[in-house]
């Protein structure tokens, strides 16, 4: 439990750091950020929007500390401000639906990629130089060299446009009503998600697989694995309970760094497929200079990543008695 508590404290610090970065980034820009915003929206924005914008970022009269406190207070009251591009809709309302799409798409594909990659890594190491090792490793290395979004473009081009296997753009057929009880709607959702889903899985799988493979190779040379084999245990038990169970621990520790990378790539994949998730929203916000939306999306993504890491930590504790 000490371990989990320590991790939790760290995530709180990290979340706070993200919030503080959010506050300071605009203030670190050359020139006056308020002026910048004014210049951006000159004549396009009504004065009330401008006021609310300033307030969101704590650009109130007074010393920096007071501005910071104002900003924090707003944040903790759940007040992320109003969207500039769709004024006066609160940012929170815009984020809600796109967060749901992202959690479903990226959450599902990342977990799937982790599981498949880990399993492939286990087998690749178990039969070193065998089929999986010789087929998947080179493929993973080649795929891993391409930018994620480029793979997305190729997938979209081939499967969406040339062969027309899957519908392109958006998360469901826009002529339909959102109705999760309706099987036609559900099937439309699944069909629309398949290309981005596969893209994320293809691009993320290699890293997990290589990592797990190398951990496994290390663990397989340990005496306890040799002794398990000598004891007469079945290959299955040796591979899973003795080798893989130990080899997965570093993978879970490395989850933090890899996850940030995978999520970053997945967000851009959303853009290519015009999938209405957080990545799409973030990039739209940046293009439309919708600062409150941009900041809020960043915070929410960060919190989601931290939460996922905490979940990985819990897994770690369940698998490793030394962390209990």
């Amino acid at each position: 439990m000490r371990f989990l508590f320590r991790r939790l404290t760290f995530y709180i610090v990290a979340a706070f750091a993200a919030i503080t970065l959010n506050f300071f980034i605009p203030r670190m820009m050359v020139g006056d950020p308020v002026q910048l915003m004014f210049a951006q929206f000159q004549g396009r924005l009504d004065p009330r929007a401008m006021e609310s914008l300033k307030e969101t970022f704590g650009f109130v009269q007074g010393p920096l500390l007071q501005q910071y406190i104002t900003y924090l207070t707003n944040l903790f009251q759940g007040n992320f401000g109003l969207s500039v591009s769709s004024f006066p809709v609160p940012v929170i309302e815009l984020i809600g639906p796109s967060l749901a799409w992202t959690v479903r798409l990226i959450g599902f594909s990342t977990i799937l990629a982790f599981i498949i990659g880990t399993i492939l890594g286990v087998f690749a190491a178990w039969r070193r130089g065998g089929g999986i090792d010789n087929i998947f490793l080179p493929i993973a290395s080649v795929v891993g060299a391409f930018p994620f979004f480029w793979i997305a473009m190729v997938v979209l081009y081939l499967f969406g446009l040339v062969w027309k296997w899957f519908p392109i753009g958006h998360a469901y057929d826009v002529s339909m009503q959102v109705d999760w009880g309706n099987p036609t709607f559900l099937s439309s959702v699944v069909q629309h998600s398949l290309m981005p889903l596969c893209t994320i899985i293809i691009t993320a799988i290699g890293g997990w697989m290589l990592g797990m493979r190398n951990n496994m190779i290390g663990v397989l040379s340990q005496d306890y694995v040799t002794m398990a084999q000598a004891k007469g245990l079945s290959d299955r038990r040796v591979m899973l309970v003795y080798a893989a169970r130990n080899a997965i621990l570093p993978s879970l520790t490395g989850f933090a760094m890899s996850l940030g990378f995978v999520v970053g790539g997945a967000l851009v994949v959303e853009l290519v497929f015009a999938y209405p998730g957080m990545g799409y929203t973030l990039l739209r916000a940046v293009q439309g200079r919708d600062y409150p939306l941009m900041q809020a999306v960043f915070l929410v993504i960060t919190l989601a990543v931290l939460a996922a890491n905490f979940a990985a930590d819990i897994m770690y504790v369940l698998l490793d008695p030394r962390a209990r």
């Binding site: 005496d223 040799t226 002794m227 398990a228 004891k231 130990n246 490793d320 030394r322």
Partner: peptide, 27 residues
């Protein structure tokens, strides 16, 4: 049977001692 050179490395760190005896018997 064999007793390995280093006891720390011969025991699976994520299984209880009992479980490591039991699975040998059950095998």
């Amino acid at each position: 049977s064999i007793v390995f050179q280093s006891a720390m490395n011969a025991l699976n760190p994520v299984l209880s001692v009992g479980a490591q005896i039991i699975d040998a018997i059950q095998a």
